[in-house]
Amino acid sequence: MNSDKITKIVLFSVSFIILIVAGGMVFSLVGGAIPAFKTFGLGFITSTQWDPTDGHEVYGAMPFIAGTLITSFAALIISFPLSFATSLFLGEYYRNTFVAKILGTMVDLLAGIPSIVYGLWGFYVLRPFLIDIGFENQGFGVFTASLVLAIMIIPYATSLSNEIISMVPNDLKEAAYSLGATRYEVIMHVTVPAARSGIFAGYILAFGRALGETMAVTMLIGNSIKMPNGLFSTGNSMASVIANQFGEADGLKLSALISIGLLLFVITGIVNWIGKLIIKKMS
């Protein structure tokens, strides 16, 4: 066998392992989810009932789906001005300067902080601060969770956008300058449109990260199983209810939790798929 062939076989088998692992996950999730869907039907997805008490067990995933989507969207909206401004600063205004290098490292560092640390910071610093300034009276809830999530996803959105923005060809920008465009006009009409699919991809990545975030959210969202009725109400998220309750769960409840895991998997898949479609259309 020549080395070419060996490389081919090695690469193939290694990537095949990933396929098997991912396939196995889906398989076991679906298998575990069957009892819950058999009992409650598709209504499991839309039902807002969650009663784990023996005798009248009812499970519905809607409060968690709502909690996850609301916190993630809110986080995306809150983080957008911060991360967009930072990526322009790093990739355009102060490209390759000392300041940008320090700031860029700091942003990347944010991605490396474990989520439990964000949770602790939110719990002991951000929450009392929100109460002190009179923004909220108890500090737990969708808003606090979104705020911490927003900070957590900044590096994901920023790094990719920054990379793409700094890759916009200089010729394009110089052409715009030669036509008398101001720097602001160049950014708005040349740089951003040229980099938009990459920027968008960065936000999809950030959104996906927010969907699956567990620890920091569970410490701040209040973990009350009901539909959140506003930004300041307590709620629960899909990842957080699984982390909280699987320990003592069995039977139908365990199946309901696995189903929520499956739904989270599906939602993440759909978000990625829509993201890819939009990116394709943009570029």
């Binding site: 008490t53 108890q138 737990f140 209040g222 009350s224 909280n244 309750q245 003592e248």
Partner: peptide, 9 residues
């Protein structure tokens, strides 16, 4: 675990 009428977890 229960279906709590009020409070947070």
């Amino acid at each position: 675990s229960l279906n709590w009428p009020v409070g947070m977890g």
